[in-house]
Computed example of a mutant assay.
Amino acid sequence: MDPRTPSRRSVLRSGAALAALALIEGCSSDGGEEPAGAAEASAPAASPAVPSASAAGWAMPAESSPHTRTFMAWPALEEVWGDQLPAVRQDIAGLARAIAGYEPVVLMARPEQAAEARQQVGSTVEVLELPVDDLWARDSGPTFVTGPGGLAGVDLNFNGWGNKQTHTEDSQVARRLLEHYTITRIQAPVTGEGGGLEVDGEGTLMATESSWVNGNRNPGKSRDQIEASLKELLGVSKVLWIKGVAGQDITDCHIDALARFAEPGTVVLHRPGADTPPDVWTTASDQALEVLRSATDAKGRTLRIVELTEPDPDRIQGYGKDFLATYLNYYVVNGGVIVPRFGDRAADDKAAAVIAELHPGRKVTQVSINTIASGGGGIHCATQQQPAAGAS
């Protein structure tokens, strides 16, 4: 990738990105003052007359619950991927085919790019002609909740991770997708992304303050206000907040690259290698470990923490400063788990074995995603599940 090209872990240094950084510097968990006009620029449109998930008896199910399908998106823009666009499309095609071995996959693609997408993914993947900008369906797509009356999708008002990347089409993906499938839409009173949410399916949510209590998404809102909105939207009763890292990657440190629920009461935590020099990312992992060790979930359980060490960067082809080298960004599908393979054979096999043990009865499939990872994302970032109605 051209070093001048923005990626998921590179904060853009011009235009809207500078404004976003200014907002980050003024953001705190107590909802400090924001620059004039910030609220107007980032505030979501008025919500339609649809009840919140909590009021309707809906809740966000665990990823391990049964899926109807997986949504993905075909990367569209050379301005984002530069000369790596063909390679990242190959990664997405390979990932889509792997998931299609377990459950239906719907790949969103711009109408003028749909033919190429169909050719690359083959007949096992459905291509839906729907305009997108980039591949990060976890963030641009809806977050689903289920319960009495079936299924609803929460539109989190995707704004390009705080206006850091082009999102003209991606900002409309959640609405358009829900309209296409005639699924009830709940427009959130907060702005964020699906990668910033991790639930156990039994009332507990994990999230980072850096990606939610942040002026580039929710100017003027305190952590307590955002927490109240997330509880209503997702039907959860307890939020475990981890500090995270603001302003160092395009997501502001999403939880799905740091800590995940393997099952209720068990959290998998990303850990740096033993020889990794201290930096903001090792500090974030250490802080998450400290918080989770002393935390209890919505059911009052002390958490079991399983540490998953990152691969050796010296053994990874294409590794660069923006590479997301974490095994945490795996994806649970019907009957299986899709796990990244980076090229450090010993670390890849160890991670696959740990994840298999954490998800008994599911087949582990390893998929090479180094071009996706070079853009600062992973398998989980590139996928969004539609749970079966009534899943829990």
Rank of each mutant, 00 (worst) to 15 (best):
I24E: 14
P277A: 07
A87H: 11
P311A: 10
I372R: 08
L303I: 02
E126S: 13
D249W: 05
P340A: 14
L18W: 06
P340Q: 13
A96L: 01
A325I: 08
G390Y: 08
G160K: 03
V364E: 09
W136T: 10
A352Q: 08
D155C: 02
S374T: 04
G273Y: 13
A16M: 12
S237V: 08
V125Q: 00
Q90G: 14
I379F: 04
G147Y: 06
V105C: 01
L12R: 15
A56G: 12
I369S: 13
D349K: 10
L258D: 06
A76R: 14
T70P: 04
T266K: 02
P131D: 08
D252Y: 00
A17F: 10
Q386H: 05
H167L: 09
A16K: 07
F144E: 01
V105K: 05
E198I: 01
D312Y: 04
R185T: 12
S29G: 14
P111V: 09
Q317T: 13
P104T: 00
P111T: 06
A325E: 11
A38W: 09
M60P: 08
G220E: 03
Q248S: 02
S237P: 03
T326P: 15
D279Y: 08
P111C: 02
C27S: 12
A353E: 14
T276P: 08
A295Q: 06
Q113G: 00
H380F: 11
D155L: 01
M72D: 00
G201C: 04
E63A: 05
R293Y: 02
G196T: 02
S210R: 03
K299Y: 01
E232F: 07
I226F: 00
G150L: 00
E169M: 09
N159P: 11
